[in-house]
Design a protein around this nucleic acid. Structure first.
Lengths: 151, 151
DNA sequence: CTTGAAAAGAACTGCCT
DNA sequence: AGGCAGTTCTTTTCAAG
């Protein structure tokens, strides 16, 4: 954990909303000079608080109209099973995220597909054939909203 | 949907891996000139295929060691209920994403908290008091991997 | 579609309070 | 720590092949 002051927090809040802001624009927003904004930004990046920058793509414009969350329960869960499952699931291109979780399910997967028939294909030929798969629960994404989170 | 050629796809793949690449570095990777990489990038941005750029923060370094996925079933789900729920849930700072889904649950929420006691506080005082909440299922995040997705 | 180059702007550095 | 002024680099636009 890193100690942040109010200026750091304001900087992160601004950048989480729009990562394309220049340090000069940031400085204007925060009421400080451009080099100060730059130094803060660099410090946060070097210390790893800022872990990276990601492109946000428009699924639909790319022809992937369907996103589905799958909860997966494994039938057998030794150490080897987990590793086998993770390796196999990582090889499926339609899988966007693999989350290892604790609770009713063992893994949560975010899958994207062109349409529902395409999703059925992925589910039957890719997911259901994964090593050790037990129960699977699906939730089709209707809409999603991302929030800044606590800071 | 937008029609993309192989160069566009290669460009997106490269940028999804590292959104900090300069257009010159991109051009080198793709084997084209810098102005071409720049034009392609601009076209993809203007057309909305590239929807934005986001900062990736390190939860733990910010002091939020716990992330939990909640599946929420509403007890009553008229149009008004959905809107009430969404408005109320958006006001909780610990909520990072709100996903309206179809399936066993109505909403999936990603919650972050400082630790498990802090999460319990959020769950009891914020989540369980939301308007119309029925069943709630929780999955604690152990680890997550993001994959490039299909392209 | 390319290369090359100039103009604008952003990022980075050193020095000062 | 913060600010000013300057340098360097990238992005962006344009001319010409």
């Amino acid at each position: 954990m890193t100690e942040l002051d109010d200026l750091d927090r304001a900087l992160l809040r601004a950048l989480v909303q729009d990562a394309t802001l220049s340090t000069a624009a940031l400085a204007r927003l925060l009421g400080c000079s451009q080099p100060v904004a730059w130094r803060r930004l660099k410090r946060l990046t070097d210390s790893g608080v800022i872990a990276g920058r990601r492109l946000v793509l428009d699924r639909e414009k790319l022809g992937f109209g369907v996103a589905v969350f799958l909860g997966v329960k494994l039938a057998t869960k030794g150490r080897v099973s987990l590793e086998d499952f993770e390796r196999a699931v990582s090889a499926i291109p339609e899988v966007q995220t693999v989350e290892h979780v604790l609770g009713l399910y063992d893994y949560r997967l975010r899958i994207v597909a062109r349409d529902l028939p395409d999703f059925e294909r992925v589910l039957r030929r890719r997911i259901m054939t994964l090593p050790g798969v037990g129960d699977v629960e699906a939730n089709v994404l209707l809409s999603e909203e991302r929030r800044p989170g606590p800071l």
